[in-house]
Design a protein around this nucleic acid. Structure first.
Lengths: 138, 138
DNA sequence: ACGTGTTTGCAACCGGTTTGCGCTGTAAAA
DNA sequence: TTTTACAGCGCAAACCGGTTGCAAACACGT
């Protein structure tokens, strides 16, 4: 995916494609699991963390990324699955390894079909498993 | 439930029943939804927050409380359901209201029966819905 | 080139959690 | 009973991500 593709994605979401935004999105596309601010800060050096933060905030508001609370003390971000466009069903379960701190997408674990009472306006779902991952458990 | 009952619970979990620990456990038993450190600090005044923190840490290690990440910036704690003794199925879904910040236990939303591959050692599960609660949505 | 609004980097701040440390109280050893 | 060892405690300070205020840099229409 080249730069102009990325720029199109942003434009389609009503976001002006500035350098920082393109770089952040590009980085996110490379990832196979959710990342936190610090991860991005490192890999996008020397971009400022406040800038990255604001880009992520924007992306999240415009349904480009999901926010994931994995139970580490740090918020993680993951690209939305484009097609389904931020519907709750776009979301899947994650596994957080307490040892190495990595988050693994359990794509095949679909959000179970739960019916929350009408009165609750559900905006997002987090389905996290925590424990030790196969890699660390040896 | 009287003090010696509480002391027994602690002893049964291999914890020496000190004053602070009994008081914290007692407080937790009164709660109907998860609480954070600040909540407990207020209600247990003048107990020191570091002490409360360490008690909770201990309780969590010894399977007396669950730790719940609701996506607010603050960790919440909830008594484990005694009978099932910290099994994953003891856990249930929660709803976090982004407006008033309260967490509601959706007891009737059972943990769906998911099979994570063997190699993952699952220790806990967090199943969080976020949005606006009936109270705030008017 | 000029002026306005947006984006960025820097530095400082914030709030909740966590830690270091010295005092206290309790229980085992002498 | 006295001594000794150690767990538990409170206080204050550190820590750590996330967040914000502000002024400089930039983009863009005029």
């Amino acid at each position: 995916m080249n730069n102009s593709d990325i720029e199109n994605i942003l434009t389609n979401h009503g976001i002006k494609p500035t350098t920082n935004r393109v770089l952040v999105l590009k980085d996110l596309q490379k990832r196979t699991s959710p990342v936190n601010l610090a991860d991005l800060e490192m890999s996008l050096d020397p971009m400022d963390k406040a800038s990255i933060f604001r880009v992520l905030e924007l992306f999240s508001k415009n349904d480009i990324v999901h926010v994931i609370e994995d139970g580490s003390r740090s918020i993680k971000y993951e690209l939305c699955n484009g097609k389904e466009h931020h519907s709750v069903s776009d979301q899947h379960a994650h596994f957080y390894c307490e040892k190495c701190g990595s988050v693994i997408c359990l794509d095949y674990v679909k959000m179970p079909d739960i019916n929350i009472p009408e009165q609750y306006k559900v905006k997002s779902v987090n389905f996290m498993f925590k424990g030790i991952c196969p890699n660390c458990y040896k």
